[in-house]
């Protein structure tokens, strides 16, 4: 189980002639629940795009495990405006997650349909499978997109600011769901988020980014550092 899913060694990312993110080293092993935090403009999104392979590193190396190389990485992107009125059933959306492992074959196999069905079941959206994606609520859309990501790989899930636009109770449901996937289904989770108050109760590792890595380690230690205290805004002392 000590197989490393994703490993960064001294990685830099940037656009044209300046680096947005410098010298990041980290790794994700099965069972991890890692959260990348940082202020606006700290390079969180850039780092995430880099990990997904949407952006080429300007220095350093990123290594993926064999499994992930084959299937690609499943991730939950932020909603794009084009998706708001997109005519597609939940089933079509979820099934599109299987694309990476399919290679050159033009159509989905029975096996891939089964994987899609199993993931819809896992996320409790089986009865929505013929519904139109644009008619779903925010929370249901999230579930459909997570099911799609799990079709690509059930090893590692990358989430980009996942709770943006969700109401408080949906947000709590969402965290419960991710924790369930992490603990019971053994999906490693990497989340980029602003929501630090909730994160420290959920994740087990934190990476605090401000162009360079300011902190990388377990949550308990993070709370004790200066960054942790500043970022948490004294939330500890209330309790």
């Amino acid at each position: 189980m000590s197989e490393i899913l994703l490993k960064c060694e001294h990685v830099d990312f940037g656009y044209e002639n300046y680096d947005v993110v410098k010298d990041v080293s980290m790794e994700i092993v099965p069972g991890d629940y890692l959260c990348i935090v940082g202020a606006n403009g700290s390079g969180k999104s850039t780092l995430m795009k880099g990990l997904l392979g949407l952006l080429k590193p300007t220095g350093g190396t990123i290594t993926l495990s064999e499994d992930l190389k084959k299937s690609g990485i499943g991730y939950l992107p932020q909603q794009t405006p084009a998706q708001k009125d997109f005519p597609a059933t939940v089933e079509e959306v979820v099934l599109s997650g299987c694309l990476g492992m399919r290679g050159k074959r033009p159509f989905y196999s029975m096996n891939e349909r089964k994987i899609a069905a199993a993931n819809m079941e896992k996320l409790g959206i089986t009865d929505l499978k013929k519904s139109c994606y644009r008619d779903l609520s925010g929370g249901q859309k999230q579930r459909a997109l997570i099911a799609r990501a799990l079709c690509a790989t059930d090893k590692l899930l990358i989430l980009d600011e996942p709770i943006t636009g969700l109401d408080p109770s949906t947000t709590q449901d969402f965290y419960r769901l991710i924790r369930h996937l992490n603990r019971d289904e053994h999906v490693a989770v990497l989340m980029v988020s602003h929501d630090i108050q909730n994160i420290v109760t959920q994740a087990n590792k934190i990476l605090h980014l401000k162009q360079t890595v300011q902190f990388y380690g377990p949550v308990e230690e993070y709370k004790k550092t200066q960054y942790g205290r500043e970022f948490l805004g004294g939330a500890e002392s209330w309790q």
Partner: peptide, 20 residues
Amino acid sequence: FYNKVFAVTFDESFAKATGV
């Protein structure tokens, strides 16, 4: 390419991340 056209139309970055 029907399924790929769908994936690319629906969500370019996800499609890219899964190797399309």
